[in-house]
Amino acid sequence: MCRHNPAHNPILCILPPYVLDGIANNGTQKQRAAALRTKSADNTFRAMRIAQQVPSSATQHAPVPLAELKPVRTIYHARNQQNLPGDVVRAEGGPEVAGDDAANEAYDGLGATFNFFADVFGRNSIDDAGMRLDATVHFGDDYNNAFWNSMQMVFGDGDGELFNRFTISLDIIGHELAHGVIEDEAGLQYLNQPGALNESLADVFGSMVRQYAGRESARDASWLIGDGLFTGNVNGVALRSMKDPGSAFDDPVIGKDPQPKHMDDYVNTFSDNGGVHINSGIPNHAFYRVATALGGHAWEKAGRIWYDAMCDPRVRPNTGFVRFARVTADIAGRRYGAGSTEQRAVYAGWDAVGIGLLASDL
């Protein structure tokens, strides 16, 4: 049974529902069956409200010097069932699991995400208090998704026809764990603009996890989310493109990438929790514009501004794009100086996606 704490967000999945809808409508019988099983499982998990507290390390861990921050990872094997967490196959410091790429990719991805938040932001795991990092691989039967359920990561193997295993892309792992950080700091509602901002922040940090691991500059990075997830049967490069939202895929089975990159094309919809995976393209592109304008590594300036904004008390659960943009601009001015190159880049980045800011907005 999938455990869930009702005080937290519903499970947060990497694969948008509109992709599964496309497969259910246009795929082969096998592809449709896998998509429908995935949708059924996802809908069930979202509906569950089991009163079980997420283990908190806040009262169990004394402050740890930054140089001593270390992850505590455990990887479980679900044996293609839907019982969580499953059987332990690798614990912290243990050897690689022979012949199991998913288990080893999950272990390495959890470590890379922990190291990114620790090294760049001095953060001690998801809750900044040493929370252990658990992940289950080989979940379900051809399960086409990965999700964070407020307690752990869960990865499906994909159907092998349209999707590879969901541990294959480091930015997916970073994205899902970042949902935990967002939940802990901003608590953004998973609906409409706050939900799209939630998804965007997860993409921002997921992309930076990958860039940090590869020491990529902002201008050299691909800015793709889910690169490698599609098999060769899909006409697409990734689930999303922060560089050019709307261009990630155009396939007769899964459909066309619906993301806008400008407020003129904002999608008003009741599906996808009010378009959380769709309209996230707008703040995604704003961050891309800021990071590439500033150059260097995305996490050094743009990432710091976005992280500080996420942690700012002015960002409340119902925060939309404009309020978040105002906070980033204010933080850029406070950190780097009013009228600085950094603050001007933030103004320009938001303006490029149709969110113009004035000094009086701050």
Rank of each mutant, 00 (worst) to 15 (best):
W148S: 00
P283S: 08
Y190M: 03
P63T: 04
P85W: 09
A62S: 10
V154E: 02
L224F: 10
W299P: 02
R90G: 04
V120Y: 06
G99R: 06
I50T: 13
A238W: 02
S280W: 00
G174V: 08
T74N: 03
C13Y: 07
W350Q: 04
D42P: 00
V276I: 14
G109H: 07
V327K: 01
K256R: 10
M242T: 01
A348L: 04
G349D: 00
G180V: 07
A106E: 10
R314L: 15
H285I: 03
A118Q: 10
A35L: 02
F147D: 08
L362M: 15
H8T: 10
Q343M: 05
D184C: 10
M151I: 07
G275Q: 00
D42I: 14
V89R: 06
P194A: 08
R316L: 15
Y266Q: 00
W148Y: 14
C2Q: 06
R289G: 01
P95L: 15
A352R: 06
P258K: 00
D157F: 04
L239P: 07
D108A: 15
P16S: 05
E342I: 13
F45P: 03
S241K: 08
A248V: 07
Y307D: 03
F114M: 07
Q82D: 11
S241M: 07
I278A: 02
N115T: 14
P10T: 13
L224K: 01
V209F: 02
P65L: 14
N43G: 06
A325D: 00
F270G: 13
V154W: 06
H4T: 09
Q29E: 13
T292Y: 08
M48D: 14
L69D: 09
D227W: 00
A338T: 13
I173R: 04
D251F: 08
Q82S: 12
I182L: 12
R314M: 13
Q52W: 09
V137E: 00
V290N: 01
A102R: 04
S271L: 02
V88N: 08
R46I: 11
N144W: 02
R219W: 12
M153E: 05
G160I: 09
D308A: 14
G274E: 04
G122K: 04
P6M: 14
T74I: 11
D361Y: 01
H277Q: 11
L133A: 11
F117S: 01
R316T: 15
D257Y: 03
R132V: 13
Y143D: 03
I11A: 09
V88A: 12
G206N: 03
A298S: 11
G232H: 13
D227S: 12
E176M: 09
S150N: 15
I172E: 09
F155A: 03
H175R: 12
A112G: 05
Q343P: 05
D141A: 14
L20M: 11
W299N: 00
A286G: 07
V54Q: 08
A7I: 11
R240S: 02
A196N: 01
Q29K: 10
A286C: 08
T38V: 11
A213F: 10
G180N: 11
P317N: 08
H138Y: 04
I126D: 00
Q193L: 05
G156R: 02
Y76D: 06
D361T: 08
Q60P: 01
R32L: 09
S40P: 02
